[in-house]
């Protein structure tokens, strides 16, 4: 960083500490909401992922399927993209599972004199890491390609449940983006106001710099760097505050909301996400400063625009 920029920033801190401090405070508060929001969305997405692990395709077979057709079908299931290896359950295994889970309630069911009505099936689960939003599409596509094959009686993936689940995931993502946009715009306004104050307080200094021949870049860059610094410091402050809140509350949340699939524990932002978040603060600060200072020292251009031929 050049000497002029360091001097500019240190003078800002010396001469306008209140303006800078209030900007830092308000922006840190805004960023804390954003960081908290990121932590919450990150954990909700994790919870969605763990719920999504239970999503699987059940392919029920005709009782009359020949061993060749069954083998052919298995090969085709194995070729499905995004799915794990299929697990085969024979008629008798299905009956055993059913008996063991239902015997206490209805021991007469599956009485051998009525035969075994349960079909053999292949169960095939989605691979880990498939985006919850893509799960429905994959299941629908796989179901369509399998159900018309020889020896397939029916294909099921709990259509209604999966569709509702996909809608929830989609709505959550859209509302997250909207909220993020609102917070981003608010953050830009805060930095921009702070830089405007700084500009007003330094109007005379800018005029003097113009007078002695400073270029637009020489005048603007220190303000942009100042904005970037406000942004990055606020982002780091927000991460620190959010982390403290996370530490103090995660145990309680895990206990109370364990049913949401938070079995592996709540997670804070990863180091790479913290770096990204700081960069986000830096870019937001620099961008809003740039937008604020782009029209300063336009005495020359303005005189042309406002002149009247005489």
């Amino acid at each position: 960083m050049s000497k002029a920029i360091i001097e500019h920033i240190s003078k800002s801190f010396q001469h306008h500490p209140l303006t800078l401090f209030s900007s830092l405070l308000v922006l840190t508060a805004t960023f804390t909401i954003v960081a908290g929001f990121f932590v919450v969305t990150h954990n909700i997405e994790n919870s969605f992922q763990s719920i999504g692990k239970n999503v699987q395709l059940s392919i029920y077979l005709d009782d009359s399927i020949s061993p060749e057709d069954k083998s052919k079908l298995e090969t085709q299931i194995k070729a499905l993209e995004g799915f794990n290896e299929p697990i085969f359950t024979s008629k008798s295994q299905a009956a055993e599972h059913f008996k063991s889970s239902m015997s206490a309630y209805a021991p007469e069911l599956l009485n051998e004199e009525y035969g075994n009505p349960l079909p053999a099936s292949f169960e095939v689960a989605l691979k880990a890491g498939v985006d919850p939003e893509d799960q429905l599409g994959l299941l629908k596509e796989a179901s369509k390609s399998i159900e018309s094959l020889i020896g397939v009686d029916a294909v099921s993936y709990g259509q209604d449940w999966v569709e509702n689940y996909a809608t929830v995931v989609r709505s959550f993502k859209v509302s997250s983006l909207l909220l993020l946009f609102v917070l981003f715009a608010g953050g830009m306004l805060i930095v921009s106001n702070s830089i405007k104050n700084s500009l007003e307080q330094r109007r005379e200094e800018i005029e003097i710099l113009e007078l002695v021949g400073a270029t637009s870049t020489e005048i603007r860059v220190p303000f942009i760097v100042e904005g970037a610094m406000i942004g990055v410091l606020s982002a780091l402050g927000a991460v620190a505050i959010t982390y403290l809140v996370f530490l103090s509350q995660s145990g309680l949340i895990q206990k109370e909301l364990g049913f949401l699939g938070l079995g592996n524990g709540l997670q804070f932002l990863s180091p790479s996400k913290i770096i990204l978040f700081s960069l986000f603060g830096l870019v937001l600060g620099a961008l809003s400063s740039h937008l604020t200072v782009r029209n300063i020292n336009t005495g020359w251009a303005a005189s042309g625009a406002g002149s009247v031929n005489g």
Binding site: E210, L211, G299, W300, S303, S307, V308, N309, G310
Partner: peptide, 12 residues
């Protein structure tokens, strides 16, 4: 003076 120091410019 403003015209000499380019803080203003002539209309014609």
């Amino acid at each position: 003076f403003k015209m000499i120091s380019a803080f203003d410019r002539p209309c014609s």
